[in-house]
Amino acid sequence: MLPSSVDKPRESLAQNLIKKSKQQPLVPLFAVLTCGALYLSGKAIRQNNARLANRMFYWRVGFQALTLGALIGGAYYYNDTDVGGFKGTPQEMLLKKSKEREQLWIEELERIDRESKKIVESKKTESAELDNGSIEKQ
């Protein structure tokens, strides 16, 4: 049997990543450009062209700064409270987590309760039917 937490549809990491990449496309774009600049500087070093490598390093730092800017700017623009889990003090975060855990546990207990009630109910009807003689005892 699955725990009750499965019943609630939660956003998976993949969905989250895709959603955020679509929402803030500048972040992956600049990250790829950063890698491209690094690749070109590596190539320049192999060709013993230190000047070109240096220029590519400039671009690398620039693109990385832009990536970071897009990342943080995006989080502020979309008021992303999920940055690193939770915005607030660690105490508030602990409280939120414990409340979430408590809620899950209550749901779990309710589910068990519902199921046991169902079983009791079905037993009752079964015994009543046995008393009536509507079904034969096996």
Partner: peptide
């Protein structure tokens, strides 16, 4: 718990020291 980060883990605040 089929979630990420796991239920008992408190991830680090990204806008803090990191």
């Amino acid at each position: 718990g089929e979630i990420w980060p796991p239920m008992s883990i408190m991830p680090m605040q990204a806008t803090d020291l990191p």
